[in-house]
Design a protein around this nucleic acid. Structure first.
Lengths: 245, 245
DNA sequence: CGTTTCGTTGATATTAATCAACGAGCGTGG
DNA sequence: CCACGCTCGTTGATTAATATCAACGAAACG
């Protein structure tokens, strides 16, 4: 918690990753907006896309800042959050491989984005992207579909934050995070959690202590096992029950 | 609270309002998606649009139900909510004049919609609307813009539900609701609140009692005055301060 | 190797929920 | 028209959940 104001990442700070030389070979190609692009469009895309990497804790952009780029995450985890003036933080989501940042195409970012662990992503100047979107209705259609999914997700999250207790929140988090991860990797029951307890707390509207206690309780009841940087689910059925509805 | 399962409104239950014979004379015309339509397109629109009215407490559609229509609200207030199996309810928003229901164009509704007071709205078969959207990129663009606004709003709401206390929630609700109303009517300081305390509670993730006590507290401090079916703001500046950030 | 961060656990405080009672308004039916 | 039952909002008393404060060990880090 607390406001951590670092410089937003500059071009020079970014490690240019050699692993994704172009969009055609990109492993998140079929996961992201890019899935809506034809082979030939992908080439156009390649010309404006910048492949980048950044170490943990890098601030990618800040809420209110001019939105110069839209992003597609190719590796690692990014926390998206809002800050209140007094430092309270609400994490609105964790972006992983295949996630697109900037769906709304707003002129300014409406959240802060920070690398949780080492990340790789590609970014496209928003102006170029907007131009493409304006020219290609099917791209806009894809974008809108993603927006719809996010809208659906935020409703889930409102229910969680407004009406669920600590145990339900943690259980629901583990399951939904697992579901999201399963789209991009095989992780049947052991869920990697690169984010800290503090991140989870700020995501679930709880305190670090409550998250820790709740996880300990689940572990005591043999529903999960805490492993380094992750949690292994022992009884998915019971956890689903706890998450409730 | 508690699950209220009534029949979803049927065609016969709906009072066909004589006040909005067509889209060209519609007073919400420039507020809704319709704002993206040209004069000629509006005529096409007119052919598929059904103008309807419904009394308070009418269930317009239910979460999970096949989404046969998209809606545009022309009068009154509609509560949108999710229900948990045990009856807990989270209201995700109040739709008022000019609001569009079904932005995501999903095949099924992801929330329930219920008339708070007497409402008027027009509905369009989703299939017709989707066809129009597919043909007219600028309509999709408009729709996407609306989705972006809603996304932004749900982030606000996540912060409210996850990180704000009762007083901040109530203050923020009054202000944001006023801001929304101001787009469609003049209501400088006296905010009409057709919804019950229970609705407000389920919107803010609180109980009826806490909402009532908090409003009483604001009234005791002379920041607001409770009036029949509404609240008058006496000290917007202080309330803004309380709402915080 | 000291220092800091992180996660955990315990003790206590505080907020909001729950339980309960009551009065006002409203519609219904005698 | 009045009496009755109902819903709604308010307020009070109490409880329960989670936050806060505090301490500690282990891991991570310079």
């Amino acid at each position: 918690m607390g406001i951590t104001l670092r410089e937003t990442v500059k071009d020079g700070d970014l490690i240019c990753s050699p692993h994704t030389p172009n969009c055609s070979t990109c492993t998140s190609r079929h996961l992201s907006v890019c899935a809506a692009l034809g082979t030939e469009e992908l080439v156009t895309f390649d010309h404006v896309v910048q492949h980048r990497g950044a170490p943990a804790k890098t601030l990618l952009f800040e809420q209110g800042q001019k939105a110069d780029f839209v992003f597609s995450v190719s590796e690692g985890t990014i926390r998206l959050f809002r800050l209140l003036p007094d430092g309270r933080r609400q994490i609105t989501g964790f972006a992983i491989k295949g996630d697109f940042l900037g769906v709304a195409l707003d002129e300014t970012y409406d959240v802060c984005a920070e690398a949780v662990d080492a990340v790789r992503f590609c970014r496209i100047p928003r102006s170029s992207f907007v131009t493409m979107v304006d020219e290609k209705p099917h791209l806009l259609r894809k974008l809108h579909q993603i927006a719809g999914r996010e809208l659906h997700f935020s409703q889930d999250q409102m229910v969680l934050l407004g009406r669920r207790n600590a145990e339900e929140r943690v259980a629901a988090f583990l399951l939904s995070h697992r579901a999201r991860l399963s789209r991009v990797m095989t992780c049947s029951v052991t869920i990697p959690l690169p984010m800290s307890r503090s991140d989870i707390a700020d995501y679930l509207g709880l305190t670090i202590e409550t998250v820790s206690r709740t996880i300990s309780k689940l572990a005591r009841e043999k529903l999960v096992v805490v492993v380094p940087d992750g949690i292994r689910l022992l009884d998915v059925a019971r956890i689903t029950e706890l998450a409730g509805g």
